[in-house]
Write a protein that binds this DNA or RNA. Sequence first.
DNA 1: GCCTTAAGGGAACTGTGGTCCCGATAGTGT
DNA 2: ACACTATCGGGACCACAGTTCCCTTAAGGC
Lengths: 201, 201
Amino acid sequence: MAATPPPGAVRPGGRTARVREAVLEAAADTLAEKGFEGLDLGEIARIAGVGKTTLYRRWGTPGALAADLLQDMAERSLPRSRNGDIDQDLRDNARLVLKTLTDPRQGRLFKALIAASLCNDQAAQALRRFYAVRIDEWAGCVTDAVERGDLPPATDPRRVIAAVSAPLYYALLNTGEPLDEAAADRAAAAALAAARAGALT
Amino acid sequence: MAATPPPGAVRPGGRTARVREAVLEAAADTLAEKGFEGLDLGEIARIAGVGKTTLYRRWGTPGALAADLLQDMAERSLPRSRNGDIDQDLRDNARLVLKTLTDPRQGRLFKALIAASLCNDQAAQALRRFYAVRIDEWAGCVTDAVERGDLPPATDPRRVIAAVSAPLYYALLNTGEPLDEAAADRAAAAALAAARAGALT
DNA sequence: GCCTTAAGGGAACTGTGGTCCCGATAGTGT
DNA sequence: ACACTATCGGGACCACAGTTCCCTTAAGGC
């Protein structure tokens, strides 16, 4: 049997692309404002100015819509600069993550997307790809530091970057501990100390 | 105006208690099996063998039910032993967290409860209290280590314990990196290195 | 053991989230 | 520029989550 192509795949240009853009924007706004639970396809259709049927046909569920938004966000992601000082680089990374998570809109959006990933396998896969991209963007500065001899040779760059983010996300999602610059600097310092001690190989 | 007491608060014994127990058990099973999205009050009522009306009257929403379950779990929590070796203690803690998160039932349950906390403020508060209790249970071994002089005097015990869990939760929720004993030991070693370096004060 | 009334349970009801059908619109290959 | 058909959009429709009503049961104070 001939596999039916997913709707929107055969003629992805023009109107179809405009619809997707409008829908993803409305979805991001709504997720940031009301969280994943508040993501109602009918309402998104209304906000985006498209037919309700279109939403159900192309995405079907809030989870799938969140997954598509995550994929879009991953594609828009852009590589970061490296400034040759691992201490500074990690602190910059921690500050950026902090800024993202504490920004009223972005922070809520990320929470909502994580909620989506916990409710829907498609969204979970998309979230992993998103973080893989984000972490790879920053892994370079760790690779540089290893080559310079600032960190042990066997150090795993991705693990170092993940170690910077982990405590910030843990504070956001689990403990609710306040997220401030001190927390960010602590996260960077802890990751660096762990890497220097050879615990992230 | 006289504030109406919440249903179940005036006569909490006997039948009311039995209903709560049956409902929380059914809720935990369902959360573990189908996730937060699959938490349907009507279905919980059927499984627990109580009236649907009762569920809507006493809890009202899936989020509130998850919050009540979290409170129940926090109350059942019990203090851990300390064996006088901070390295061993942290590794034990990491292994326990790992075991919880990778256990088919418990792991899914925790994911579902975190999802609930991201969708509902009551559940979020309950989750924070739960982790506060859990972390305090383990903070003692860090306090001991500081007193023994194994860690810098200004070390914050809760931050050390949180630093052990953080990378494991980050792997579970964000990156999807595999959770195994090596990951647990790495988390413990990284937290210890950070604490020794005075990064967790 | 009795009385008061809090809490539970059954069943009918309703608003709305999600589906279906079909005509209208506009990409895309030629 | 034309034709073919993928995709969109409106509206009717339907199932069921959540509410309401009211009677029954049993907690808790005396």
